[in-house]
Simulated assay, not measured.
Amino acid sequence: MSPAPSAVLFDLDGTLIDTAPDFIRCLNKLRVQRGLGALPPEHIRPSVSNGARAMIEVGFGLVPEDPDYQEYHTAFLDLYEAGVAEETQLFPGMAELLDWLEETAIPWGIVTNKPERFTTPLLHALQLDERCAAVICPDHVAQRKPHPESLMLACKQIGVDAASGIYVGDHRRDIEAGRNAGMTTIAVRYGYIEHPEEVDSWQADLVADTVSDLTKLIQYR
């Protein structure tokens, strides 16, 4: 059995918390405002980890080069900010994992590409803001994931060596960032992944299909 990790860092959307319901609600609300029908949740969910840009492409077929893109992008983010935690919650089983980490005195933190504008009120609403040892958003670094800067900063704030920590994520860029930082990486297949079979090609050290699997990998790896 390997030594206990010095810290466990989590990606946010699709890894630690299920933000999809609020993304789906806001996108469909914007579609209705624009005279369109709501899309099925399963049509939107796989793209949630790719952020607002992906939502606008899924919902309206617009990309940043299109003339109307910025208007839709801004309107979507305003809707999301107004209700950032209406339906969002920890993935089932994650509360117990966080409790175990705290009881075992293993600090945990969040490293996300979600801007601080949304991350801070979201964590406050879920009462996680005073529990996590570090929260790193793209606002805090020069380069986003998959660059390792954000992970290294989180480890520095916590006071641990990245090489003895774990990073957990549901996107290829998360695993690349973790590897670039020299951390043990765990890819989770329960997140917002359009093609779950592709997770095996990300070269993560470990793969978890469920939160229960993730808990076992962290506790007994």
Score class of each variant (00 low, 15 high):
residue 4 A to M: 12
residue 6 S to F: 01
residue 7 A to C: 00
residue 9 L to I: 10
residue 11 D to H: 08
residue 12 L to A: 06
residue 18 D to T: 03
residue 20 A to Q: 11
residue 21 P to F: 04
residue 24 I to E: 01
residue 25 R to N: 05
residue 30 L to V: 09
residue 31 R to T: 09
residue 36 L to S: 04
residue 38 A to T: 14
residue 41 P to D: 14
residue 42 E to W: 10
residue 43 H to S: 14
residue 43 H to K: 14
residue 43 H to E: 15
residue 45 R to G: 00
residue 45 R to A: 14
residue 47 S to E: 12
residue 49 S to H: 08
residue 53 R to K: 15
residue 57 E to H: 15
residue 64 P to T: 05
residue 64 P to H: 06
residue 65 E to Y: 00
residue 66 D to C: 06
residue 69 Y to G: 11
residue 75 A to P: 07
residue 78 D to T: 11
residue 78 D to Q: 13
residue 81 E to S: 11
residue 81 E to T: 10
residue 84 V to A: 07
residue 88 T to I: 09
residue 91 F to P: 05
residue 93 G to S: 11
residue 97 L to P: 03
residue 98 L to E: 05
residue 99 D to W: 09
residue 111 V to M: 02
residue 117 R to P: 12
residue 122 L to V: 05
residue 127 Q to P: 00
residue 127 Q to W: 02
residue 133 A to N: 02
residue 134 A to P: 04
residue 135 V to M: 13
residue 138 P to M: 12
residue 141 V to F: 09
residue 144 R to D: 13
residue 145 K to T: 04
residue 152 M to L: 15
residue 159 G to H: 10
residue 163 A to R: 13
residue 167 Y to S: 02
residue 167 Y to L: 00
residue 171 H to N: 06
residue 173 R to I: 15
residue 176 E to V: 10
residue 177 A to P: 00
residue 178 G to T: 01
residue 181 A to I: 01
residue 183 M to K: 05
residue 185 T to M: 03
residue 189 R to Y: 01
residue 190 Y to M: 09
residue 192 Y to M: 11
residue 198 E to N: 13
residue 203 Q to A: 12
residue 205 D to N: 12
residue 209 D to Q: 10
residue 209 D to Y: 03
residue 209 D to I: 04
residue 213 D to E: 08
residue 215 T to W: 00
